[in-house]
Structures are given as C-alpha cells and as structure tokens.
Design a protein around this nucleic acid. Structure first.
Lengths: 143, 143
DNA sequence: TATTGTTATACTCTATAACTATA
DNA sequence: TATAGTTATAGAGTATAACAATA
C-alpha cells in the first residue's frame, strides 16, 4: 500500500539504464571504465575538487578512490596538487589531456543523447526537469 | 548548443544516485553486492527468466552473469532449471529463501523510500511518471 | 579527538574472446 | 550458421578496517 512510489523508481532506473546502454559503448571505446568516466564527468567544467568531495558526488568510497585516481593519473588525465589550506587534502583536476578527452567523449555520448532527445519539445523538457528537480529535492532532504 | 537535454540527464543521475545512497546500506547489510541485488530485484515478482533476458534487463554481460548467478545459487537464493523448450537455455527463479529476502529487503529499502516520498501528492506522482515514461519511450526507441 | 587520505585484504565485478552444446 | 551459456584471463572496482599525517 505504501508503494505508490515504486513505479516512479522503476521508471527512473529504466531511464538511467537506457541512457547507460546508449553511452556505455563510447565510454569503453575511449578505454575508460564506468568509474573512471564518472570521475572525468564529475571533474569536467569544474576547477577541481578534493577526494572527499569527489567521493561524495560519485558514491565511490575513499579507499577505492585512491586506486581510481591513481589510474587516471597514470593515464595523464588528472593531476593532483596539495590543498593550500589543508595539508591533509589534495586538489584533483583534469589535465589538458583530461579536458580534451572530456570535450571529446562527452559530446560523443551526448550527440547520441541529442538524437534521442530530438523529438523533445521545450514543454517536454520543462515538465521532466520540474518533476525531477522536485524528486531530487525530497531525496536530498532525506537523512 | 545542442545540449538542452544535459540538465535532464544530470537531474536523472542525481536522483538515481540519491536513491542508491539511501538504499545501499540496507542492501549491503543483507550481504548482497549491487549486482546481486540487481538480479534479486529483477527476478522478484516474476516467474523467472533466462540468462539472456536477465542480462538484457540488468546490463550484466553473459560471462559475468554466470558468476553472479553461481554465487546467488550457492547462497540458496536462486535456482536453475533447464528450459523445457530449448535445451541450451536455463530458467532462473528465486527460491523460497530468495523470495523471502526480496520480501524482506525490498520493503526495508522502500520503507526508506516511503519516507522520502511521504510528501509527494498524487499530482506529483502523475507528473513524474508521465515525464519519465515519455523519456523512457524515446530512449527505448533509439537504436 | 576528528578528519583526509593511504594501505592491505579478500572478494566481486567487468569486458573480452575462445569454447561447448544445441538450434 | 547462429545462439545460449561456460570457461579463462587479466584487470578493475568494492567494502572494510587499520593506519598515517594533519587539523
């Protein structure tokens, strides 16, 4: 009876899965894993951030994050600098190659997305965005 | 410029991530991995299905699926029978313990969900469902 | 004392490709 | 010839807990 919302969650999961199905191939073609692309996409269009913030945004735990960042660093896609204000902390950002990859892969994934959304009208967007923003706000408000 | 839809995708991803953050703990408390819970949830409330169908629904590739199902079988949560119509194929279904776990974990996750959605009105649901169903349909229609 | 990130452990997932058995 | 699932391989992600350095 208290499961009115299950239909929404199921739809949400199916949409995400559908989108991942479409984008996954391009990600793998660039030699990136899902976790690695998650980091690249999270760092893209930002000045960079700490492990802590990256972990919170991607849901990758700190122990795992060390390894993922290490592999991205070896590939020359991210760089680390010590935080100027907290000597325990690092600041991770995309390198120029990382930016380039982001600028290359993301549009490829999203060009695909563009096709998918070709028939979306402005009104469709507004309805979807409003509904999702509302959902996000109640989820975020949950402890 | 052709990136009007990026906001929707970002919202979609943030909603999924928020929900996973809320449900993840309960899943792990039951000793299940993400992939394993994915299978249990996919088999729940169905008569069962083949590896092929499970793989299509969960995006887990066939080689991986063999191992995931094997571990669930060892835990006594799923059972396999040969398909009566195709001797190459299996029919995987939840065992009574699997059903029990599904009936136990899912509400625990979703009770959490219930709290989150407590303030959702019927109209909120309808708008979200309609928007997501539309999105799903255009994604599914994409090759 | 609490927090940021590292290391160690043990296991699971992952993609990929070659393979077996059946269709 | 094509398809359902298995096996083999090599690597990556995962949670967890104990640890270091710094706050």
């Amino acid at each position: 009876m208290g499961e009115r919302y299950l239909k929404s969650i199921r739809l949400l999961a199916e949409c995400m899965q559908g989108f991942e199905r479409l984008s996954g191939r391009h990600v793998r073609e660039q030699g990136l894993t899902h976790a690695q692309f998650d980091i690249i996409a999270t760092l893209g269009n930002t000045p960079g951030m700490s492990y802590k913030e990256l972990g919170e945004r991607t849901l990758i735990t700190k122990g795992t994050l060390t390894g993922v960042i290490e592999r991205l660093e070896q590939k020359g896609l991210v760089a680390r600098e010590r935080s100027p204000v907290d000597a325990r902390s690092w600041f991770i950002r995309l390198t120029p190659q990382g930016e380039q990859l982001f600028a290359d892969v993301f549009p490829r994934v999203t060009a695909r997305g563009g096709e998918v959304f070709a028939q979306f009208t402005e009104s469709d967007y507004e309805q979807l965005e409003q509904a999702l923003a509302h959902l996000k706000s109640v989820i975020a408000a949950s402890p």
